[in-house]
Amino acid sequence: MTLTRKDIEEIMGLLEASRFDRLALEMDGVKLELERGGAGLRERPSTGSGRADVAHPPLTLSSSKGRAEPVEARRTTQTAPAQPTLIPSPPSTSPAPADGLVEVKSPLLGVFYRAPKPGEPPFVEVGSRVEPDTVIGIIEVMKLMNSARAGVAGEVVEILGVNGEMVEHGEVLMLVRPD
């Protein structure tokens, strides 16, 4: 059996709730080492952007061949609490996109869904034509589903919102080349 990301997060939760600082787990040729970084290790960026680059937990997953491979691509030398990390969201006040593209922004904070239901095709894909009232996604706020509309006529050029992830109010969901 293999450890999924969800399994690892659950194990991290167990470690966090315990009074131990370190956990090593070896099973079926997989070795997992977790270490609690402790409090006060985050750093505030000096740029004043208000977004901290919080490091991922020092998480290494060794294969049976003994070759350590980082589970997460984004690792830093910093240690951090054994907790899912705060991923900074894209800057909310991004400069106007080039080429006269129009940003379609989320009308509210919530979880962004690209399709009406899991397993169904997305409302729009790159290349889709949209009208101002075309539904481009759903924003869920505490089980309440709200439609997000394009607000512009044109062609979808890029989709920035990630399905199933939280988006902020005003966060750019996609870019549209207007007619």
Partner: peptide, 9 residues
Amino acid sequence: QMATRAVCI
């Protein structure tokens, strides 16, 4: 600016 992260609600 001071918070670890700000979210626009």
